[in-house]
């Protein structure tokens, strides 16, 4: 009947924290349901199967990007080059596919994953080993990656007619009535969530993010953990970039412009704290669904597009405020000192 010491030693406050965190994700689901009902009452079309599939499809790629962002956020860093990485990956892959007619599906998947991993590794080197603050480093690489896409493209776009037809049709295929894009996205989020939950790497992400100094004393190599968080982020951005390219067909140099903002918004709305150490990738994916639902509902309600920008921004501030309130409540109940 002997338990591992790490499992046995679990003070009451820890349980409270876990309950609150569960509530945070349940809160996102409740908010989503309320939002869905409100839009359903306001417009007839929102709750139709066809429209809900549209919402899920547009949330699918964002959920992967939000997942990527969440991994980095958990380590108390952030990545504002997510959109630029997706754009560069998508353009290079589409250009390669267009200029090499005999390309195989294996290559089409392997190339973006490799490019994404390399781009993420550059970010990771700068932040983890160069000790550059995450915002500055990724703001720099955001413009470097996007600028490189512009220079490489010479103002050209890759049109869908130049891509192999199977590449475009595969994302539109359906399995059991559901678009494959949605299934792939759910599978990726589930695998990442499982990896973070079941493997030491996931625990280390949380350890470094919640208290870097304590993690260091405990013997964790924080640099390495942060580095691999960025590598994982780049890898997932590679997947997201490939799916985006296949979905839109025509790849331009501004593809996924501004996605750093929406991926951050999704993660924050889904309960991933920008102060690190808390939140889950499932929450981030749920946040992406919330954003896609808001977008879709506003379009159906014929609200001008500018309101989306305002609402998305306000949602980030509101989500951050909610997290601060929760953190304050936890601090008070555990008798912690206020900063």
């Amino acid at each position: 009947m002997s338990e591992a010491p790490s499992v046995a030693a679990r003070p009451g406050s820890r349980n409270l924290v876990e309950v609150v965190l569960r509530l945070r994700e349940a809160g996102v689901v409740v908010f989503l349901v309320v939002l869905g009902l409100a839009f359903g009452l306001a417009t007839d079309r929102f709750l139709s199967v066809q429209n809900l599939t549209t919402v899920a499809s547009s949330a699918a790629i964002l959920a992967i990007a939000a997942c990527a962002q969440a991994i980095v956020l958990i380590t108390r860093n952030l990545d504002v080059s997510v959109g630029s990485m997706m754009g560069l990956v998508a353009y290079l892959t589409a250009d390669w596919a267009a200029t090499h007619p005999g390309i195989t599906p294996v290559e089409v998947v392997a190339i973006p994953l490799m490019i994404g991993t390399v781009l993420g590794a550059i970010n990771g080197l700068l932040v983890a080993y160069g000790r550059v603050p995450a915002l500055i480093a990724t703001l720099g690489t955001m413009s470097l990656y996007r600028g490189f896409t512009y220079i490489y493209a010479h103002g050209q776009e890759v049109t869908s007619s130049r891509l192999p037809p199977w590449m475009l049709s595969s994302v539109d295929a359906r399995i059991g009535g559901l678009p494959i894009l949605i299934l792939v996205s759910i599978a990726i989020v589930a695998v990442v969530a499982w990896l973070l939950h079941a493997y030491p790497f996931g625990r280390r992400l949380y350890a470094v993010g919640s208290n870097g100094v304590a993690a260091w004393f405990f013997g964790l190599r924080a640099e390495r953990v942060v580095f691999f968080a960025y590598v994982a982020c780049g890898f997932l951005c590679g997947i997201a970039g490939l799916l985006y390219a296949a979905r839109v067909g025509t790849v331009t140099v501004v593809l996924a412009n501004g996605w750093e903002m929406s991926s951050l918004a999704s993660a924050v709305i889904g309960g991933v704290s920008v102060s690190g150490g808390s939140g889950t990738v499932v929450g981030a994916a749920l946040g992406a669904v919330v954003l896609a639902t808001i977008d879709n509902g506003l379009v159906l309600l014929r609200v001008p597009e500018f309101w989306r920008m305002f609402i998305q921004g306000a949602a980030i501030v509101a989500a951050v405020a909610v997290d601060a309130l929760i953190a304050e409540a936890i601090r008070r109940s555990t008798g912690g000192r206020r900063r």
């Binding site: 920008v274 500018f306 921004g313 951050v320």
Partner: peptide, 21 residues
């Protein structure tokens, strides 16, 4: 006591949205 990066990222969108509106 909210993190300044997240707050100003949010208001970056909110202010620009306001200007458009």
């Amino acid at each position: 006591r909210l993190p300044s990066l997240a707050v100003t990222l949010g208001t970056m969108g909110a202010f620009r949205g306001l200007a458009f509106i």
